[in-house]
Structure formats: structure tokens, C-alpha cells
Design a protein around this nucleic acid. Structure first.
Lengths: 144, 144
DNA sequence: CCTTTAAGTTATCAAATGATAACTATAAGG
DNA sequence: CCTTATAGTTATCATTTGATAACTTAAAGG
């Protein structure tokens, strides 16, 4: 198996993923929230409850900047912090009902675009796609 | 087949792709070039020769901003424009030797990280991965 | 021709993001 | 205890990116 060929595929693939997701995100006009803030909210939505440190590490945003953006999200009541009982330095963050509503709206739009994107695939192909997503997430796009 | 389940996978998958590629790009300390400029250079590297309009559309950057960033790349001699013979308004852009060198360096680093990421996969799994990349690119992450 | 459209440029401004230093509070480890 | 490490905050500044208006040049379509 040619490693170079797989790598080429990897590069064009990741470029394609970015292009498509950026297109989706552009159409989804989220005016109350910046791209970085959306990334944070989506990370919370998928992994909640999370700590600011986790957000900082996984979203590659420095702690000071994470803190700043979270503060804006608290002020807009899109997420909230809960003091961790086991360690008083720590805090857990989760979406507020308003944040859930925002993310549900976003996901609903993204789902409609996703379904449009796969409107021509058969049921068997869809199963293959689901499997492919799982395979790549497990074997390539994972973090230790 | 549950469309919602596939969509869930799609969301967590694209989030994972962004996380991993952002991590790679952070480690790859490209000091001569900003993230947006790198995106442009990579797009040129994959699709060259391309026009500024294509870059603008595919990278979702307005024409004025595309023009500005390209200008900086010309000045650093990372890419160059060639007037299109068939339409004197148009121009084709390609990497200069310096730009090729920069991208080769970047790709070499990304390849080393990619190989590290898949170091535990068997030959059969690698074939599956290659196929999965192709399938998803064709059926999900394409642009019309 | 003449008008309209397309490709690209320049200038300018605002907003978002990144980087860093200095700080508080708590936990953990000799 | 005392020192060090961890979690998070605040303030500040520089850079990057996005948005918009006004412009030039050339093609295209009556």
C-alpha cells in the first residue's frame, strides 16, 4: 500500500471537509455568535459538561482567550458554569436552555443541508457512509 | 436507516476532523504565512492553476480580501499570476518555486504527523481507510 | 456602438482573534 | 508549613480577518 497515495487523499479530503463545512457555516447566518464562539458552543454541546481547560486544549484557544469568550457567552446566557464539588478551582460548563435552543436551531439547519448533500445516495450507500465516518473517526481523526 | 443517527455522526466527525487538522496546523509553525494565507496556498497547490475568483469562491473569502492576501503572497514570492490568453480580465495563479518549497515542507510535516496517527493500522485497515476517504469525498464532502 | 456584466484592485474601517503579563485561589507534594 | 503546580481571570496590545464602497479594464450581448 502506497503511503504517499493515502496521504494525498488525506490532504484533499481534509480540504474538502473544510470547504463543505465552511460553506454550511456561511449559509447558517449566526449573528449572535462569532465562528470561534460557535466552535466553543458546539464543543460544549457534544461533550458537556466540560471545563474551560478542556475547551482551551481541544479548541486550541489559550486559557485567557477561552475565558474571555466564555464570559461573553455567559452574558448572552448561552452557557453557564457550575462549580465543581471535588475541586474548587474547577468549573463545569453546560449550555443554558437558550444555548440549547441556539444549537438545536443550528443543528436543524445543518441537518437539512446534510440531507440535501446526500439526497442521491441509496440506503446501502448510506450504511457505507455511516461506517466510513466511524472508521475514520476511530483510526485517523482521533485524539489520544 | 436512521437519518438522525447518521447526521449525529456527521457532526461529531466534522468536529473531530477540525480538531485534528487544527492540531496539526498548530504544530506546523508556519511563521511566514497566516492561516488564511496557508488555506489559499494549499488550495493553489491542489488545484493549480486557479483564478482569484475560484479562490474567492472556494475559500469563502471576498474578492477584495482575496486580492489583498494574494498581493502579500506575490510580494513574498510564494505565488505568481499569469495573464490568461483567452480573457484579458482573467489571470491564472500558480506557486513559485519558493511557494512549492514552502508547501512541500508543510506537506512533509503533515505526512509525518499523519503516519504517526495511523501507525497502528494494518495493511487491510489502511486500504479500508483509503476507500472510506474516497467514498466520503464523493458522496458527502463534494461541491457541485 | 452602447449598455451591462464579469474579473480584479485599492482603500478604509470595524470586528474578531491571538499573544502575553500579572493576578487570585486552590490543591498537591514534600 | 511551605513551595510548587493547576485552574481560571483580567487587562492590554498587535495582528488578522471581514465588510464595503469606489474604481479600472475587458468581455458580452443587444
Amino acid at each position: 500500500m502506497d503511503n504517499n497515495a493515502v496521504f494525498q487523499r488525506f490532504i484533499t479530503f481534509t480540504a474538502a471537509v473544510h470547504q463543505v463545512t465552511n460553506e454550511f457555516m456561511k449559509e447558517l447566518r449566526l449573528d449572535s455568535v462569532t465562528p470561534v464562539q460557535y466552535g466553543i458552543l458546539q464543543y460544549i454541546a457534544i461533550h458537556q459538561p466540560v471545563t474551560p481547560s478542556q475547551i482551551s486544549e481541544c479548541q486550541h484557544i489559550s486559557m485567557p482567550n477561552t475565558s474571555r469568550e466564555l464570559k461573553k457567552l455567559y452574558e448572552r446566557e448561552l452557557c453557564e458554569k457550575i462549580d465543581a464539588p471535588e475541586d474548587r478551582r474547577k468549573q463545569y460548563i453546560r449550555l443554558t436552555p437558550g444555548g440549547e435552543a441556539l444549537m438545536n436551531e443550528a443543528f436543524a439547519y445543518l441537518q437539512s443541508r446534510f440531507l440535501e448533500q446526500i439526497r442521491d445516495v441509496s440506503a446501502e450507500e448510506l450504511a457505507d457512509i455511516e461506517q466510513a465516518l466511524g472508521l475514520l473517526e476511530a483510526k485517523v481523526f482521533y485524539t489520544r
